[in-house]
Amino acid sequence: MMTPTHIAFSVALTSITLGTANPEILGVAALASLCPDIDTSKSLIGRLFFPISRWLESHTIHRGITHSFFASGVVILVSYPLALNGYSHIWQGLILGYFFGWFGDVFTKSGVQAFYPSRGRMIIPRNPRLRLGTRSNAEWFLLMVLVAIATLSININSNGGIIRGFNQAIGLPSGAIFTTQEDASRYLLIAQIKGRNALTELPVDESYEVVEPLTANDLLVKNKQGIVYRVGSSQECQIIATQIRIERLSPITVEVKDLILEEDDLYSFLTQLPQERTYLSGTLTVHDAEDLMLPSHIDRFDTITLQPGELAYARLVAASPSSAIATLGDYSVSGNLIVRTVYVQQKT
């Protein structure tokens, strides 16, 4: 089998196996795929490491010990310190690249000594006429197919993988929510939503920024004016979705703080926070809140709800600092508050 075929075979199958388009992993797999052929000085790796290949030539046969499960086991054990030291992705690329590098030769006319030290050879298929000959027309055709498969797999994985691609294609709300759960901590997401307004029954076909997954069936999204809606299939939703497609807009970093407040002035604290894409969640006890009343909306998601009383209890779910200031800014509060701030990375 030719060097380009070994590389294409290993890159394609490593990308599919790991569901990755990581160039570091695939590059290691490509290099590792050449290593089994160190048992012959005619190969590229054999010429680069001629003393080793020459010694192996004189003591073993081509496609023998280096093309076996035994050799793969040795590679796994010897390279395992890479995984222990935080380079598990490199380790995975190495062991898969090596394995696919020799396993591809199973389809050649002479096969490989896969079960070394047994001298028997693994050859697929059994019909000799269907086996690959080096530099034959069949191998050139296989190379083109493998390059196409590798390109397709890398393209799919670079866009989130097969599941994400399938979800995008059909736009199922459940699939979009699954995608959001996977991507919400890494990307600023835009949801293209088709459905109906639960209150007015009017059709909805608009884009919204995803705030966060709320449940297994629902999302929180906001429009350009910052109004938050619950979208999905549950009865509590303001928008009943029939189709949701998720678009990755920009990479993000997320900062999360867990704060404990003890009769603190909420206004002075909230004004110090970034106002854009900062979300507050938690339960607060509001002191001296006999006069505190919060309106309830049926056309949008209430990010702040209140259980009134002399000691009122406010529940915040993805509330913005501005809305918290407007409703609770004049009161002292106690309780736990999770502050999640999303920073959009600038494209270079």
Rank of each mutant, 00 (worst) to 15 (best):
L189P: 05
W91R: 03
G64L: 09
E247Q: 13
G175L: 01
Q307F: 13
M144P: 01
T40A: 08
L280M: 09
R135T: 11
M1T: 06
G104L: 00
P36W: 02
I193E: 01
M144W: 11
A324D: 12
D302E: 07
P81Y: 04
A289D: 02
H297G: 06
S72I: 04
V74H: 08
S268C: 05
V339E: 04
I90T: 06
S33E: 05
G309A: 07
E290R: 09
I298P: 00
A326D: 12
M122D: 02
S250A: 15
I239Q: 00
E209G: 07
P173T: 04
I240Y: 11
K194T: 06
S185A: 15
L220D: 02
C35Y: 03
V256M: 11
K347A: 15
F141M: 13
K222M: 10
Q238N: 03
E139G: 11
P81E: 07
R186S: 15
T341L: 07
L94T: 04
G165P: 05
Y187T: 07
V112T: 13
S158D: 14
S68K: 07
D264L: 12
Y80F: 13
G161C: 08
K42H: 14
I190P: 05
S88M: 15
P308T: 07
R63P: 10
P274K: 11
I16D: 03
M144H: 08
Y87K: 12
F103E: 04
T253N: 15
E209Y: 09
T303D: 02
V106G: 14
N197D: 14
L34E: 03
K222W: 00
T134W: 14
T305I: 10
I16L: 13
L132S: 01
T151E: 10
A30I: 08
K194N: 01
G111K: 04
K347D: 14
T271E: 05
L280A: 12
F178C: 03
Q192E: 12
S88N: 08
V28Y: 11
E255P: 11
Y87G: 00
V344T: 08
T283V: 14
G86W: 08
G309H: 02
F99M: 09
